[in-house]
Write a protein that binds this DNA or RNA. Sequence first.
DNA 1: GGAAGTGGGCGTCACGAGCT
DNA 2: AGCTCGTGACGCCCACTTCC
Length: 322
Amino acid sequence: METSVSSQLDSSLNDSVTDGEDNQSETSPSPADHDQELLAAESSGVTVVQLSDGQTVQVQGVIQAPQTSVIQSPQVQTVQIATVADLEEDETVADVQKRREILTRRPSYRKILNELSSDSPAVPKIEEENTEDEPQPISSTTSASAPTSIYQTSSGQYIAISQGRAIQLTNPGVETLQGTQTLTMTSSAAPQPGATILQCAAQPGDSPQQFYLQGGQMLIQAATGDIPAYQLRSPNSGLAQSIVMAASPGGMQSPSSQHAEEITRKREVRLMKNREAARECRRKKKEYVKCLENRVAVLENQNKTLIEELKALKDIYCHKAE
DNA sequence: GGAAGTGGGCGTCACGAGCT
DNA sequence: AGCTCGTGACGCCCACTTCC
């Protein structure tokens, strides 16, 4: 049902968009009639909304169906919004089925927004992982103001990575410089394109560990047998990055303590992942709410425009009838 | 100036859904 | 079946505002 109905709606609606706005401008001579006009100048996903007080607001990321103006019942609009997501010109039946399957699953903000954005260019996609080219959103206190990323390892050690690429390792409870190791990074000997090697020796004479930092991701290897493994999460989108060190500093441990440590490590990994997931989820939620608010603003303006339009048409009709 | 209220962000837990 | 992920709920903390 979706395809025929919606495509008809789309074409007719798009036709009526310009007509309606023309009517609006022609049939509403008083400036007050322009007050709530939705200019709907959508360029590069930005909708310009003119408010009643003369303010012009650029609205980004509005969840919006392709039509911008039409006289129609709310039901029709609802139908269209619900069905536009199912439309894609080159969409196959399998795609439609898969999309329906997806839509029946637990809703996620990312999915909802991406579904909408794939059909409405006015809605920006939520990136799988935010990249640094995106301007830092709103008020992320850590990323906005602090150029230094701070990590805490499972052993309580702190790792601070400044934007100047200096790295400091700080042991907990040690406030003197002795507790801090400053590491240097070199890019020349990178084993892979774009990777940076970081060499670290805890004690003079120790064989150094090599840390490979690649792009936004960090991959750590231990050059000695003392540290069996490091696991790193990729830092992304200005969110707090994290490092999980699966190190067993002692090296020689009983199986029971190793087991306990393994459990602890797993728990820390789980907590860390969940922490980041929660952070990401909140970010998505905020973005989703913001999109909904923008859409409300646009629809309210559309509604007012249409009411004005209807009034004008009624006037014309009444005059003709007389 | 300090107590109370409020809002936003965070970490954690629990749970369901999807995946392997 | 076990694992992973996304999200709601809860409690805590902090900053800000309001009231006395």
